[in-house]
């Protein structure tokens, strides 16, 4: 399953990294505490968070996430988009809550 599949199935809006939607999604992680995400997430995870500032990009790069989904319609800061574009990390937005989007992703990953 790749990021493009998630975008299509879940109606996510792509804010950057549209050319990197072929990245493989091997799992997911939900969290807004960066240290928790650093400790707990895995390479290939799609990260669900409400944090929209630029520091999320470094976390995703270090952990080799397949993408970041911002919840409840949060829009990424200008700097976040800039950085994510440079690093080739897809930045996606949903109107759904973290709980709802994580549940749907889980359902797609574990049908």
């Amino acid at each position: 399953m790749n990021v493009a599949f998630l975008v299509e199935k879940l109606g996510l809006k792509v804010r950057c990294g549209g050319d990197r939607l072929d990245r493989e999604v091997s799992g997911g992680y939900a969290g807004d505490l960066l240290s928790n995400v650093m400790a707990g997430s895995k390479s290939g995870d799609v990260w669900v968070t409400c944090q929209a500032h630029q520091n999320i990009v470094a976390v995703s790069v270090l952990k080799e996430h397949s993408g970041i989904i911002l919840t409840q319609g949060r829009e990424p800061d200008k700097e976040t988009i800039q950085r994510a574009s440079q690093e080739g990390i897809p930045l996606l937005v949903t109107e759904l809550s973290g709980f709802e989007i994580a549940g749907r992703i889980y359902g797609l990953l574990h049908p």
Binding site: L33, L34, S35, N36, A39, T49, Q51, I56
Partner: peptide, 15 residues
């Protein structure tokens, strides 16, 4: 507010 300062940093480093 930025999601830092959760009191996990040193713990993560040690781990």
């Amino acid at each position: 507010a930025m999601g830092f300062g959760a009191g996990m940093g040193l713990f993560n480093i040690k781990n």
